Amino acid sequence: MKSGLNIAFFGSSLVSAYWNGAATYYRGIIRALHGRGHDVTFYEPDAYDRQKHRDIDDPPWAKVRVYPAGSEDGVRRALDEARGADLIVKASGVGVFDELLEAAVLEIRSRNSRVAFWDVDAPATLDRVHNDPADPFRALIPRYDFIFTYGGGEPVTSAYRGLGARFCAPIYNALDPTTHHPVPSDPKFGADLAFLGNRLPDREARVEEFFLRAAAALPDKRFLLAGNGWHDKPMSPNVAYVGHLYTKDHNAFNCSPRAVLNISRESMARYGFSPATRVFEAAGAGACIITDAWLGIEHFLEPGVEVLVARDGDEVASHVRSLSSDTAERIGSAAKKRVLAEHTYDHRAEELERILEVPRHDRSATR
Rank of each mutant, 00 (worst) to 15 (best):
316 V>M: 00
65 R>D: 06
29 I>P: 01
109 R>F: 14
109 R>S: 11
143 R>M: 03
270 R>N: 13
165 A>Q: 07
3 S>T: 15
221 K>N: 05
103 A>C: 06
244 H>A: 12
161 R>S: 12
360 R>N: 11
93 G>Q: 15
238 N>F: 13
132 D>I: 06
91 A>Q: 14
8 A>N: 08
260 V>S: 01
197 G>S: 09
345 Y>V: 11
75 V>N: 10
175 L>R: 03
132 D>E: 12
314 D>H: 00
349 A>I: 13
128 R>K: 15
75 V>C: 10
239 V>K: 01
250 H>D: 05
208 E>W: 00
167 F>P: 04
120 V>N: 07
45 P>E: 14
292 D>I: 13
120 V>E: 07
211 F>A: 10
199 R>Q: 08
260 V>Q: 00
364 S>Q: 12
314 D>F: 00
229 G>N: 07
110 S>I: 11
235 M>G: 03
167 F>S: 13
71 S>V: 09
345 Y>C: 04
123 P>E: 14
168 C>K: 05
172 Y>H: 14
166 R>C: 05
29 I>C: 02
353 E>W: 09
33 L>W: 07
246 Y>W: 10
221 K>E: 04
197 G>Y: 08
22 A>Y: 12
154 E>D: 14
59 P>D: 10
344 T>D: 05
330 R>W: 08
199 R>T: 05
205 A>P: 03
117 F>D: 04
53 H>P: 00
334 A>C: 05
7 I>N: 05
234 P>D: 09
95 G>Q: 11
23 A>Y: 02
258 R>L: 11
307 V>K: 05
56 I>F: 08
148 F>S: 06
278 R>A: 00
52 K>G: 01
273 F>D: 09
321 R>V: 00
253 F>Q: 03
365 A>F: 12
351 E>K: 13
349 A>N: 09
366 T>E: 13
184 P>L: 09
87 L>G: 07
247 T>R: 03
248 K>V: 08
